[in-house]
Simulated assay, not measured.
Amino acid sequence: MSEVKNSESVYVPALFPKAGRLPTDPQMVSDNYDLKMDETEQYRQRLNARAGCIPACFATLRTAVPIRSDRIRSKG
């Protein structure tokens, strides 16, 4: 059997609580998500301010291409 040559401390995770770590209330999850999004936006604004950038405005444009059914060939 091999011999242990490293006697440094070993870190282990904390015991998992019986009640679990995730919130069971949907409102708590929603509030936490909103908080994280606010923190992310504030961080981005601070970075832009430091760099002297004006945040760009992005918009999504969705387009649909109509296809005429008389142009579609059936297989076979």
Rank of each mutant, 00 (worst) to 15 (best):
S2H: 12
S2C: 05
E3Y: 11
E3N: 08
E3C: 02
E3S: 07
V4M: 02
V4L: 09
K5V: 10
K5L: 11
N6W: 03
S7E: 06
S7N: 12
E8Q: 14
S9Q: 14
S9W: 08
S9C: 07
V10A: 11
V10W: 07
Y11K: 08
V12L: 13
V12W: 04
P13V: 00
P13F: 00
A14V: 04
L15F: 07
L15C: 05
L15G: 10
L15M: 12
F16T: 14
F16V: 15
P17W: 03
K18F: 07
K18L: 12
A19N: 09
G20A: 02
R21P: 00
R21C: 08
L22T: 10
L22Y: 09
L22W: 06
P23A: 02
P23H: 05
T24Y: 01
D25L: 07
P26E: 03
P26L: 05
Q27N: 08
M28S: 15
M28I: 14
M28C: 06
V29S: 05
V29D: 03
S30R: 14
D31Y: 04
D31T: 08
D31V: 04
N32L: 11
N32W: 10
N32Q: 12
Y33D: 13
Y33I: 15
Y33F: 14
D34V: 07
L35Q: 06
K36V: 12
K36A: 15
M37V: 15
M37F: 08
M37A: 15
E39N: 13
T40L: 14
E41F: 02
Q42P: 00
Q42V: 01
Q42K: 14
R44A: 06
R44F: 11
R44Q: 10
R44I: 05
R44H: 07
Q45A: 12
Q45I: 00
Q45V: 01
Q45N: 08
R46E: 11
L47N: 02
L47H: 02
L47C: 07
N48M: 11
A49G: 04
A49R: 10
R50M: 08
R50C: 00
R50T: 05
A51G: 02
A51I: 00
G52T: 03
C53G: 03
C53K: 15
I54C: 03
P55T: 03
A56R: 15
A56I: 10
C57T: 13
C57P: 00
C57R: 13
C57H: 10
F58E: 06
A59I: 10
L61T: 09
L61S: 07
R62Y: 12
R62S: 14
R62G: 10
R62I: 13
T63I: 06
T63K: 06
T63N: 06
T63G: 10
A64M: 05
A64D: 03
A64T: 08
P66S: 03
P66F: 01
I67W: 02
R68D: 15
R68V: 04
R68F: 05
R68H: 08
D70A: 04
D70N: 09
R71E: 10
I72L: 13
I72R: 04
R73F: 13
S74G: 13
K75E: 13
K75F: 10
K75L: 10
K75I: 11
K75T: 09
G76H: 05
